[in-house]
C-alpha cells in the first residue's frame, strides 16, 4: 500500500511537470523516454518518439545526415539513452502521463466493479510483438516520406496516426483541436481518421484492461532494447517464491513470467513497466525486488504486502 501510494504521488508530480512544466520554465529536454507530448501546449519536455521520427526525416530530407543533423540525432539518442539509464522502465511505471491516465481509468473501473478483460497469455505474447513493429514504423515512416512513397503530410506518422496520446493528452491543457477530422486532403483525412479511430478504440480497451496501450507502445520497445545498459531491473529469487501467483494477478501488464520463472533471476520482460505492483503485492520476503545496479531499492515482504488491495476479480 505504502509503495503504491508513493508511486501514485510520484506519478501525479510527474504528470504536472511533464504536462504543464513549460508554463513555469521546466523543460526536461527533447528526448524524454515517455509520453511527454509536444502536442500539449506548455509541456515540460518532449517525447523521444517524436524526436526520433523528426530527426530521421529531417536529416534525410536535407541530405545532411552526416553533418549537423546526424550529430544532433546522435546527441539526442545519447541523451535518451542517458535518461533510460537513470530510470529505466520506471519512466513508464512512475512518470508517463499517459500511463497515469490509464491507471486512473483502471481505478475508476475497479470502483465501479467492472471486471477486467483477460487475454490468453499466448495471444498477449503475440500482441506484445506489435510494439516492435510500431517502433520499426517510427523509423521507416519518415524514410518512406523522403523517398516519396508517402505523402509529405505523413512526416511523423506514428504521432499523427497511431498515438492515442496526441488527441487525449492535449485535453488536459484544454485543447480539443486534435479531435478534429481534417478534410483538407486525402492524406490529412486518412491521418486524422486513423488517429481518432485508434484513440476511440484504445479508450474502450483501456477501460477493459489496465495499461492496454502499453502492450503496443513503441517507447516501451525502445526502452526494452536498451535493457543491457539499464541498471534498474526487476529481479526474482525463485528459491523464495511460494508460487501463489499474486504477482501476476496484481500486474497490470499481466506479465506471466514474474510468476512462472523458476530458475532465472531476470524477470524483466518486454512488457514489464517497472511499476513495482508485483513487488508490493508479493508476501514472500525477498522473492521479488526492484534493483538498481545490483543494489536492492525495494523488495517484497509480508509487511509491504499487508493492506495491499485485493487481487483483481
Amino acid at each position: 500500500m505504502l509503495l503504491k501510494g508513493y508511486r501514485l504521488a510520484i506519478q501525479h508530480v510527474m504528470f504536472i511537470v511533464l504536462m504543464y512544466g513549460g508554463r513555469f520554465g521546466v523543460n526536461l529536454g527533447p528526448a524524454v523516454p515517455c509520453f511527454a507530448c509536444p502536442y500539449v501546449t506548455g509541456c515540460g519536455g518532449y517525447c523521444y518518439l517524436m524526436g526520433l521520427q523528426g530527426y530521421i526525416g529531417f536529416g534525410i530530407s536535407l541530405g545532411h545526415f552526416w553533418g549537423f543533423e546526424g550529430l544532433r540525432a546522435l546527441g539526442y539518442l545519447l541523451l535518451f539513452a542517458g535518461l533510460v539509464m537513470l530510470l529505466g522502465k520506471a519512466w513508464c511505471g512512475f512518470a508517463c502521463p499517459f500511463g497515469l491516465i490509464s491507471d486512473w481509468i483502471t481505478l475508476a473501473r475497479r470502483r465501479l466493479g467492472i471486471p477486467e478483460a483477460k487475454i490468453p497469455p499466448a495471444a498477449l505474447r503475440r500482441l506484445g510483438a506489435v510494439k516492435y513493429a510500431l517502433l520499426g514504423f517510427c523509423a521507416a515512416g519518415p524514410i518512406l516520406v523522403n523517398l516519396g512513397v508517402l505523402h509529405r503530410d505523413f512526416y511523423i506518422p506514428f504521432c499523427q496516426m497511431l498515438c492515442p496520446g496526441k488527441p487525449l493528452l492535449p485535453l488536459f491543457a484544454g485543447e480539443t483541436r486534435h479531435f478534429a477530422l481534417d478534410l483538407t486532403n486525402a492524406a490529412t483525412l486518412v491521418i486524422t481518421a486513423s488517429s481518432l479511430a485508434v484513440t476511440g478504440a484504445c479508450l474502450a480497451a483501456m477501460i477493459a484492461r489496465p495499461r492496454f496501450f502499453c502492450t503496443f507502445c513503441p517507447m516501451l520497445a525502445l526502452i526494452h532494447l536498451l535493457k543491457p545498459i539499464t541498471p534498474l531491473a526487476l529481479r526474482k529469487n525463485p528459491a523464495l517464491c511460494h508460487g501463489c501467483g499474486t504477482c501476476q494477478r496484481v500486474c497490470g501488464m499481466d506479465v506471466e513470467r514474474v510468476c512462472t520463472e523458476k530458475a532465472s533471476a531476470d524477470v524483466q520482460t518486454g512488457d514489464c513497466v517497472n511499476c513495482g505492483d508485483c513487488v508490493a503485492g508479493c508476501a514472500a520476503d525477498g522473492a521479488l525486488s526492484l534493483q538498481f545496479a545490483g543494489r536492492t531499492v525495494v523488495s517484497s515482504s509480508a509487511g509491504l504486502a499487508l493492506g495491499l488491495r485485493k487481487p483483481r476479480p
Partner: peptide, 26 residues
Amino acid sequence: SRTAGTDLPLGILLSAAAFAVTGLGI
C-alpha cells in the same frame, strides 16, 4: 490553412463510433 479543413464534431463522432464498436466487441 491548418484549421479551415478541420471538423471537430465529425472527429468526435468518429472517435465515439470507434469507442462504441470496440466496447461492443469486448
